[in-house]
Amino acid sequence: MAKARVKAPKKAKAGDIVTIKTLITHKMESGRRKDKKTGKLVPRHIIDKFTAKFNGETFFSADWHGSVSANPYMSFSYKAEKSGEFEFIWHDEKGEETVKKSKMTVA
């Protein structure tokens, strides 16, 4: 099971543009690496979609390909308007999803 970390502010002022940082454990197997013992290609297995929502609405998303490094790091911004909850979703090619939530109060 992938383990994710999120750094998002708990508080902000309306109109602030806040920065959000995320990390998740994942090998991001590109399908081009050879197993050293067997000499066979390790099957491709990557996280292909990352989605960031606030109060259920997607405000940022990313498509990842084999060029994204292992343990993907993703940082982006959000314009705070009202209080609510962030939801971050990592979707991998096998259909597995990791979800992380974080509340933010906007004054």
């Binding site: 990313a62 993703m74 911004s77 314009k79």
Partner: peptide, 13 residues
């Protein structure tokens, strides 16, 4: 538009 800025950071191979 809710992104506020068109900024992003990541790590690539």
């Amino acid at each position: 538009p809710a992104s506020g800025r068109a900024n992003a950071a990541a790590r690539m191979r």
